[in-house]
């Protein structure tokens, strides 16, 4: 499996939400629904507090429980990669994938099928970055192939301390956050 990863530098992210707008525009996400969002995390003890912003979305897990739980194969990996896609023509809207996702990263389209971040695979196919990454005004978001040691994401993860969300689930999430 070729692993694609997204790396978000929490030192550079200012929580402007442009990634959210870019996603909604690029993917025509209906009103009231969001494929990505920004979290503000405050840690420490007053007065020694620190704040970081995280642009979050589907983690495109290498061991995705949503893919495993889907009864029809609508949730599937794109080719031999970890990019998780949903095929609307196979989806019954049973919502098993939503129950199976520990990140609550999926949503229900008004048409009835289940939707989520696709890592803008239609752009990736053309050699472009996902819309959120290309729009980010602080250049805090990066995207690439993790298995390529020379890729930007590999070099960033090798040079900086990083974490991913809920690694204890065993889903092997592929969105990383630089501390």
């Amino acid at each position: 499996m070729t692993r694609y990863a997204m790396v978000v530098d929490t030192r550079l992210c200012i929580g402007c939400g442009d990634c959210v707008i870019a996603c909604k525009t690029e993917n025509k996400v209906p009103d009231g629904l969001n494929r990505d969002w920004v979290m503000e995390a405050t840690h420490g003890r007053y007065p020694h507090l620190g704040t970081e912003f995280r642009s979050e979305r589907c983690n495109h897990c290498a061991h995705a429980t949503c893919v495993q739980s889907c009864p029809t194969g609508a949730s599937h990996y794109w080719g031999e990669t970890n990019i998780v896609q949903v095929a609307p023509e196979l989806c019954t809207g049973c919502k098993a994938c939503i129950a199976a996702c520990p990140y609550n990263a999926r949503l229900i389209r008004p048409e009835g099928y289940i939707d989520k971040c696709t890592f803008c695979v239609h752009r990736v196919e053309q050699g472009l970055e996902p819309a959120c990454v290309s729009t980010c005004p602080t250049r805090c978001m990066h995207f690439g192939v993790l298995d390529d040691a020379n890729s930007e994401v590999s070099r960033l993860l090798a040079s900086r301390d990083s974490y991913c969300l809920l690694p204890e689930t065993g889903n092997e999430p592929q969105v990383y956050y630089l501390r």
Partner: peptide, 17 residues
């Protein structure tokens, strides 16, 4: 202490809150 809150709007029906 760790407090995590949404900085952008998110209210996907049947998912949130």
């Amino acid at each position: 202490m760790l407090e995590e809150v949404l900085a952008t709007a998110r209210f996907n029906p049947k998912i949130d809150p």
